[in-house]
Design a protein around this nucleic acid. Structure first.
Length: 478
RNA sequence: CCGGGUGUGGCGAAGUUUGGUAUCGCGCUUGACUGGGGGUCAAGAGGCCGUGGGUUCAAGUCCCGCCACUCGGACCA
């Protein structure tokens, strides 16, 4: 029942995953393409999801002392270029402003691809004493990176995100911040988005340009490809030195603060789509769903029905839920399909027969289960279901992750597992970038991360045979 | 950036081979009947066929250029 195809306008997930994804994005009215390639319009429904994500995350950031700021959108070229690795990493994908008011600028300006440079520049002007540390900043904004291949949410030339930037008196504090924010992301993914993650450290090849260490949460999509969910970076004092950010320490010497940055983007919406979605469209976890409950009156022109349905809606709103009642003249079938496409977690059906029996019918989006409940218990029953749905969605995604994480002891085995099953392949690794490149060339997989929770799978690197240093996850990534 | 594909009402397509009155489905508007899984009927509105040149009595259709989008590859949150 749950897998019955009810929405005809969305390509089947088994037929063409990429097309299915695009169909969902558009049929659920999340995005529309804009007139410049790689730029998308986040439509009200899509933006509402983002707003829910934002408000939950923002509250978490504030709990740990972070404050929001707003930095300029343009970076002078000379400022951007002060740190070599960052320039190398980002310059190729910068968009540049060369003219202002019709006149050519003396120095061209980059649209921010990320804002480390501006935070550093700002700090170099305001920081004086260790007493002012740490500075725990965050900003919600969009950035521009001139990507060649673009897809809604997953890779666009402009994307919305939050970027946290902090400076600390000591390396230990900065490292602790990096870990804290990584855990913040992991918790958000698991508890809010209902997406299980693998927490780990990126290899030098995959880490952020200019970072000392990059930590990541990696998740697995329904097509078993990997998606980098969010990253948290430790910079040491590299940027501080490059941008001359200094403070007077407790011992009255000039010191360089230790820095972190961490970011998560609207890509998380893509992760939700590809983790939970099905052939009927989007499936949203209750915690971020713009509409948690859709109330559908049946035969609404019959006396008492609409009134009954409205009363029911009012009770749920009063209980603190995000509820909508659709009393449009569309047919029942149309409405069911519409809210399934949009991923509304719970549908409440309320018709003449139900009202006669003092009941209504709850239908769960993620598994199609129907439950008749007495109107006496409406609020508790609905709230209970939303909790169960949130958990049910996580469990289902966790099963996909666990089932498709494999262990390999040779390059051949890794190749075979990848081509037959997809998913994550875990192996030991010597730490050599050459082995990483070989895995990419021969098996098509990049390293995802070295999980924080290490397992001992053997003593040697399966690629080169040298002694192994770490257990590492591989996968085909978005 | 390399290779393939596609541009025709809001969306999806047919028509292009062989030049000859702009088609279909969905959606939209108005009204009626309906209503427990994308309802039925009726009447409407909406298109210089991506763009610029050329060939021709005549171009959506043929020729040349450009642009955009899209799918693979390389690069990336």
């Amino acid at each position: 029942m749950a897998n019955d195809k009810k929405v005809q306008s969305i390509t089947d997930i088994e037929v063409d995953f990429a097309q299915w994804y695009t169909d969902v994005c558009r049929k659920a009215e999340l995005v529309e393409y804009a007139s410049v390639k790689g730029f998308t319009i986040l439509r009200p429904y899509g933006y509402a999801i983002w707003e829910n994500m934002q408000s939950i995350m923002d509250a978490e950031f504030k709990k740990t002392g972070h404050v929001n700021v707003a930095m300029p959108v343009l970076i002078p070229e000379s400022l951007l270029k002060r740190e070599g690795e960052l320039v190398e990493g980002f310059a190729p994908e910068c968009a540049w402003v060369t003219h202002g008011g019709g006149e050519k600028l003396e120095e061209r300006l980059a649209f921010r691809p990320t804002s480390e440079t501006m935070f550093c520049d700002h700090w170099s002007n305001i920081l004086q004493s260790y007493r002012e540390l740490p500075m725990l900043y965050n900003q919600w904004c969009s950035v521009i990176r001139w990507e060649k291949t673009t897809r809604p949410f997953l890779r666009s030339r402009e994307f919305w995100w939050q970027e946290g930037h902090t400076i600390h008196e000591t390396a230990e504090e900065a490292i602790a911040e990096t870990e804290q924010q990584l855990n913040c992301y992991a918790d958000f993914y698991e508890n809010v988005l209902a997406i299980p993650v693998v927490k780990g450290r990126k290899t030098d090849k995959e880490k952020f340009a200019g970072a000392e260490a990059t930590y990541t949460v990696e998740c697995m999509m329904k097509d078993r490809k990997a998606l980098q969910g969010a990253t948290s970076h430790y910079f040491g004092d590299k940027f501080s030195r490059a941008y001359d950010v200094t403070f007077t320490g407790r011992d009255n010497t000039i010191q360089y603060p230790h820095q972190t940055s961490w970011g998560s983007t609207t890509r998380m919406i893509g992760a939700v789509i590809m983790t939970h979605g099905d052939n009927n469209g989007l499936v949203l976890p209750p915690k971020i769903a713009p509409i948690q409950v859709i109330v559908l009156p049946i035969a609404q022109h019959k006396p008492g029905v609409l009134e009954g349905a409205n009363a029911l809606k009012d009770r749920l709103v009063k209980a603190g839920l995000r509820v909508k009642l659709d009393d449009s003249d569309n047919s029942m079938g149309w409405k069911c399909a519409e809210y399934e496409m949009k991923g509304v977690p719970l549908r409440v059906e309320c018709g003449p027969r139900d009202l006669e029996n003092n009941q209504c019918v709850l239908v769960r989006r993620h598994d199609g289960e129907k439950i008749a409940v007495s109107l006496d218990d409406l609020e508790t029953a609905v709230q209970e279901q939303l909790v169960l749905i949130q958990k049910g969605m996580y469990d289902k995604a966790k099963e996909n992750l666990t089932q498709h994480t494999y262990e390999a002891h040779s390059l051949e085995e890794a190749k075979k597992l990848q081509s037959e099953n997809g998913g994550f392949i875990k192996t030991m690794w010597c730490g050599d970038v050459e082995c990483e490149k070989r895995m990419k060339d021969e098996a098509g997989m990049s390293s995802r991360c070295m999980p924080l929770e290490q397992e001992h799978l053997g003593d040697v690197c399966p690629i080169c045979g040298k002694p192994a240093k770490k257990m590492i996850y591989w996968g085909v990534a978005y």
